Simulated scan of single mutants.
Amino acid sequence: MQPGRHLAEAGRPMLNLAQPIWLVLSLPLLVLAVLRWRRERVSQEPASVALIHPQLELLARSQVAQPGGRFVRWLDLLAQLCLVLALAQPQWIGAWLPETPQGREIVLLVDTSRTMSITDFELDGQPVERLAVLKDIVTRFVAGRRGDRFGLIAFGSVAGTLVPPTFDRDLVSAMLARLRVGIAGDDTAIGDAIGLALKQLQAQPRLRPALILFTDGDSTAGDITPGEAVALARHMGVPIYTVQIGGDLFAAGRPKAPAKTVSEPGLAQIAAATGGRYYQAGDRGALQSVIHDIGQREKTVVRPATRRVVQEWYLLPLLLAVGLLSLARLSAIRRVTA
């Protein structure tokens, strides 16, 4: 563990030394300074033996010129201590840095069949088509999910991948804005859309992925039946949240699904079989509540913060040492030239 690490884990801002072992160098510097100071005191004590010399007066004058030398030595000592402090790397440990949430892979399956143009939703008191309201609310959902990888599939008579799972939420939002009714045909190939979405998922995701299916009715087309797609989703352990947009399954002349010898699962059965949930959204408020509930059920994992803001302060004692050494050298030069 790095020295001082346990102090930084306390959570509050503090001053820390990253390499305090370098402070050991200050001990011999202080010892040398004390020995030099004691030696100077001994040399300044009056001698017990009188010295008679014809040039004794000149010798006394030369000793008077020495007081500045002690000042230079103290400056050198302080500069050396500042260099030791710089080697210890003083740091200011600040606030915790939030970690990026560990998100999920979420593939959005959006029905663009003909009936998604029905204007049974309202916005600001004006009738709005189903797809327009859906795009607005889903865009807000995508923007609020940091750390998730979103994919986008549009389906009608056929299914097509508009955006494979990506962290680029702006790209997903831009492609959502470009969706138009009828771009994939007038029918509803739910089985093809689910099968294509399952192919987009990673083989070993960090967290369980999920599919969110937005449609206004049951499957009426496609090469893969909803039953086959649900069996594959169950095998992969992928829940499917199904959201029925609007209330009238066969509004605006939408043809009913042809009778089949083997009944295919509806939206409620698809959700129940895969561990998801079935929703009905008859208006804008209900659709907002549905999106919020799905977001609560498929939460991102917020990892605990492990890093903090660190400001290196070693430059301050380093600059101070340079200043003290410069001042000491200037003082020494003045003594020599005086």
Rank of each mutant, 00 (worst) to 15 (best):
P3C: 02
P3M: 08
E9A: 15
G11P: 03
R12F: 11
R12N: 03
L15K: 07
L17A: 00
L17T: 07
A18V: 08
Q19N: 08
P20G: 14
L23I: 02
V31T: 07
V31Q: 00
R36V: 02
R36N: 09
E40N: 03
Q44I: 01
L51N: 06
L51W: 11
L58C: 00
L59C: 01
A60Q: 13
S62K: 03
V64R: 15
V64A: 13
A65G: 08
G68A: 15
V72C: 12
Q80M: 15
C82Q: 08
L83C: 12
L85V: 13
W92E: 05
W92F: 11
G94P: 09
P98A: 15
T100F: 00
Q102L: 13
G103C: 01
R104H: 10
R104N: 06
V107D: 11
L109M: 13
R114N: 07
T115R: 10
T119M: 13
E122Y: 15
E122L: 13
L123Q: 14
P127N: 07
E129V: 01
L131S: 04
A132H: 12
L134F: 05
L134H: 06
L134N: 03
L134T: 15
L134Y: 06
K135T: 08
D136L: 14
T139C: 05
R140F: 01
V142Q: 02
R146T: 07
D148V: 03
D148K: 00
G151Y: 02
G151N: 10
L152F: 02
I153E: 08
F155H: 05
A159G: 00
G160D: 09
L162F: 14
V163Y: 10
P165T: 10
R169S: 15
D170S: 12
L171T: 14
V172Q: 02
S173G: 12
A174K: 10
A174I: 01
A177T: 03
V181G: 12
D186T: 07
I190G: 05
A203M: 00
Q204R: 12
P205A: 07
P209G: 04
A210W: 04
A210R: 04
A210H: 01
I212P: 01
T215D: 03
D218V: 13
T220F: 02
A221Q: 14
A221M: 11
T225R: 07
A229K: 02
V230F: 12
L232D: 00
L232A: 06
R234Q: 14
Y241H: 10
Y241D: 10
I245P: 04
I245R: 05
F250T: 04
G253I: 00
G253P: 04
K256D: 06
A257W: 00
P258A: 14
P258M: 11
K260W: 02
E264K: 09
P265F: 07
P265R: 06
G266D: 10
L267K: 05
A268P: 05
I270H: 08
Q280P: 03
A281K: 09
G282W: 04
G282L: 13
D283A: 05
H292A: 15
G295F: 00
R297F: 00
K299R: 14
V301C: 03
T306D: 15
T306G: 13
R307M: 07
R308N: 06
Q311R: 15
E312A: 15
W313M: 10
L316M: 06
L318N: 01
L319F: 08
A321R: 03
A321E: 12
L327N: 01
A328F: 06
R329H: 08
R334P: 08
